[in-house]
Each structure stands twice: as structure tokens, then as C-alpha cells.
């Protein structure tokens, strides 16, 4: 165990945790906004997959990761419009619709990958962009300021999203329609339009999350996300629908995963105990969810469609 508590290993562990947390943090931020407005989207995983493939394929064909990111966000917006039509306009049951979106994303990206790419082809991906001066700070620089630009963007979006939700009129409307849409409606807030906005934004985040994943590993493969979209949904509950806490949950999940990897790499754990330890992030999440659920309530109108007539 002593080899783990060296500066270099601890620094690598924390930096790895931040890297691992980035895709599901991005998706969770968007999902938090959507749920604050009363819309649950279980299709985050599917949209992440579509975003991942879109970014990968665009980068493969054009050589531009920026174009890949843009296309992933655009595809996310399109998926958001589809989901908004189903859930806001048609009042589809949100859980079932989300699962449909997930299955669609899983199958559709596999189909496209088989037909358009075939054998996995590596792409350069998005490289590191050390922040001048800050990245030179001993240890802290490597942990926080020596990542790719999407990592910085993800963590920069936390205070921005917090500000949007808590300090703007739009955020006030979002919170209001997530609690009592009828009351918000009587005050002149367009519930369905606002929810459409939040769904589109949330899906853009999911598309960006997929892009972050594909461009970090520099490749696409069937079911690339491997459950990260569902982790993002769990993090929303973990973080009690508050952006800073969602970020804390993502970091905790990422750092625990990174720690387990380091322990295995260093041979601190092996065999059956190693297999058990691999479940640590999930078990930790469940424990925190149990604790959180006793103290915090979900938005009152979550999963409830709004119909002025009824």
C-alpha cells in the first residue's frame, strides 16, 4: 500500500479521476437542468453514443476534432427536439421514451459504424492543452491544468450552469415549472416551451459528453459509452439536483475508479478482492443515493407532463 501513497502516484490518480469524470459530468449537468424542469431522460446513454459516433466519424473524415465536437452537439440538439416532441408535445411516458431513445442510439450507432467504418480506425483525438503558468505549478498543475480542452470546459460549465439555474430569469422559470408547472403557467411562463429548451440543452450536453469520450480515447466501438449515460443519471440524484454536488459526485466516482485502477496496476489488490473492488464506485453511489433520498426531494413535477387543459 505504501507505493500508492507517493506523490507521483497520488497526482496521477487524481488527474485520472478528473479525466474519467469528464464525460459523465457533462451529461449529468445537462440532465440536471432537464430534471429541474420536470423532464427525466433515460435516453442519455443513447444520445451520448450518437454524439460519440458523430464526433468520431466527423473527425475521421475531416481530420477536425472541432468539427466533430460541433456535429456531436448539433446531433444532440436534434435528438433533444425529437425527445421534446415525444414527451412535451405528445405527453409520452418519459421513462419508456427514454429507453426507446437509448435502444435507438445503441443500435443506430452500431449500424452506422459497421456500414461507414467497419474495423476500428484510430483518430488523433483531442490532445492535451496545458494551461500556461498554471500547469507549471508543482503537482497541482498536473492534476488540474494539464488536460484536454473538453475537461476544462466541463468543469467551467459547472458554475455557469449553477448561475443559469439560480441567478437568471430562465433558471427561475425552470425551477418553477419543475415544481408547480400550473402555478408557473398562471404567471405567464410557457411551460412547454421552457421544457423544450431544457431538453434540447440537456441533449446537447449529452452529445458533447459522447464527443468528449470518443475524442479522449481516439476511437469508436460498439457501445463505447459502456453505461456512462446511466451513471450520469445516477449522479443527478446523487447531487440532489444541484450542480456543484453533481460535480462532486462525478469527481468522487472518477477518483474512486482511478484509485481502483492504480491499486490494481501496482499489485496492491489482485484476484477476487480486485473483482470486488471494481464494484466500489457503484456501491458508493448506491450508498450515497440511499442517504440523499432521505434528505432531499426530487422536483415535484418530475416526469409529470403539463397540459393546460387538463
Amino acid at each position: 500500500m505504501s507505493e500508492f501513497f507517493t506523490v507521483s502516484v497520488l497526482v496521477a490518480t487524481l488527474a485520472g479521476g478528473i479525466r474519467l469524470a469528464t464525460p459523465f459530468l457533462l451529461a449529468a449537468l445537462g440532465e440536471t437542468l432537464g430534471q429541474r424542469s420536470g423532464v427525466l431522460n433515460l435516453g442519455v446513454e443513447g444520445v451520448m453514443l450518437i454524439g460519440a459516433f458523430a464526433a468520431y466519424y466527423t473527425a475521421l473524415e475531416t481530420g477536425s476534432t472541432v468539427a466533430g465536437i460541433a456535429v456531436a452537439i448539433g446531433i444532440g440538439a436534434v435528438m433533444g427536439l425529437i425527445y421534446a416532441f415525444l414527451t412535451v408535445v405528445m405527453h409520452a411516458e418519459q421513462g419508456i421514451s427514454g429507453i426507446g431513445i437509448f435502444l435507438f442510439g445503441l443500435g443506430f450507432t452500431d449500424l452506422l459504424f459497421q456500414k461507414q467504418v467497419g474495423t476500428p480506425l484510430p483518430i488523433p483525438g483531442v490532445g492535451k492543452a496545458p494551461i500556461p503558468i498554471l500547469s507549471d505549478i508543482p503537482h497541482l498543475g498536473e492534476i488540474f491544468f494539464d488536460h484536454n480542452p473538453l475537461v476544462y470546459l466541463a468543469f467551467l460549465l459547472v458554475p455557469i450552469m449553477w448561475f443559469v439555474v439560480n441567478k437568471t430569469t430562465f433558471g427561475l422559470n425552470v425551477r418553477a415549472i419543475g415544481q408547480t408547472p400550473e402555478a408557473a403557467d398562471t404567471l405567464g411562463v410557457s411551460v412547454n416551451l421552457t421544457r423544450t429548451f431544457t431538453i434540447v440543452i440537456a441533449n446537447c450536453f449529452a452529445g458533447l459528453a459522447g464527443a468528449a469520450l470518443a475524442l479522449e480515447v481516439g476511437i469508436f466501438q460498439q457501445n463505447l459509452t459502456a453505461g456512462q449515460g446511466f451513471i450520469a443519471i445516477a449522479l443527478v440524484y446523487f447531487g440532489a439536483w444541484r450542480m456543484p454536488w453533481v460535480m462532486s459526485g462525478a469527481l468522487l466516482f472518477g477518483v474512486v475508479s482511478s484509485t481502483v485502477l492504480q491499486w490494481k496496476t501496482l499489485g496492491i489488490v489482485s484476484g477476487p478482492s480486485s473483482s470486488l473492488l471494481a464494484m466500489a464506485p457503484a456501491i458508493l453511489t448506491i450508498l450515497v443515493l440511499v442517504l440523499v433520498s432521505r434528505r432531499v426531494s426530487a422536483p415535484a413535477a418530475l416526469t409529470r407532463p403539463f397540459d393546460r387543459a387538463g
Partner: peptide, 25 residues
């Protein structure tokens, strides 16, 4: 020889991070 079983046949991101951990060590 450091061996890291990531307990998944499909998690590409975890495999990448495991490789990064190996290189870092």
C-alpha cells in the same frame, strides 16, 4: 509485469485509463 484486470470486456475508457496508469508507473 504489472497486470490490471479492469473487470470489463467493453469499457474502452477504463482500458485507456488503465494503460495510462501503467505508463505513469
Amino acid at each position: 509485469v504489472n497486470v490490471n484486470y479492469i473487470e470489463s470486456f467493453s469499457d474502452v475508457a477504463l482500458a485507456a485509463e488503465a494503460a495510462t496508469a501503467h505508463v505513469g508507473n
